[in-house]
């Protein structure tokens, strides 16, 4: 894994509300780990309408999901990948796809349920989850106050949390 490889985060360009078919591909690979999104996948298959080869792989448990690397490694150039999963599974499948050689432009991700947002502490590098609306957070590890910045670090897999002293904080 290269440290600068793309990772899935709440604002990733690959996250979509609805799958769309791209005309410039030879094959569509659909990986579904979320049975609740069956309608979205059926819509995609309807839209493909037999015009492009497609393969649907459904995972129902984590044991099956461990085979995802093998499946992704076998894909050829010209394949578009569609991921339908809950956040944690989507993050794993996405990472495996990047490792196999897919670029972000070749992936669409449909998240079932909530997306997660992570912040890392610039003092101790601890990574923790933060709610979408939070602008400040206290580091679980070193207890320092952090202001959540706009920059996402691919290496740390989280937004940068800038330490500050709340005693000197100004309120707007």
């Amino acid at each position: 894994m290269v440290y600068s490889n793309p990772v899935l985060f709440d604002k990733s360009v690959t996250i979509v509300e609805k799958f769309t078919v791209r005309q410039d591909c030879r094959k569509i690979l659909i990986i579904s780990a979320e049975p609740k999104e069956a309608d979205a996948i059926q819509q995609l298959i309807d839209e493909i309408n037999g015009q492009t080869e497609y393969e649907l792989i459904e995972f129902n448990d984590e044991t099956q999901l461990s085979h995802v690397n093998e499946i992704l490694d076998q894909q050829k150039m010209g394949t578009q990948l569609y991921i339908s999963a809950k956040w944690e599974d989507a993050v794993s499948i996405f990472a495996a796809a990047i490792e196999a050689g897919f670029s972000e432009g070749e992936i669409q991700t449909l998240i079932s349920g909530k997306k997660k947002r992570y912040v890392y502490c610039l003092k101790c590098y601890h990574l923790q989850e933060a709610a979408a609306e939070e602008t400040d957070i206290v580091c679980d590890h070193c207890q320092i106050s952090l202001e959540i910045g706009p920059f996402f670090s691919r290496e740390r897999k989280g937004y940068i949390g800038y330490p500050y002293n709340p005693a000197f904080a100004t309120t707007n």
Partner: peptide
């Protein structure tokens, strides 16, 4: 032959 190159080529 290009049709057979693996993803990431």
């Amino acid at each position: 032959t290009m049709a057979e190159h693996r993803i990431g080529s």
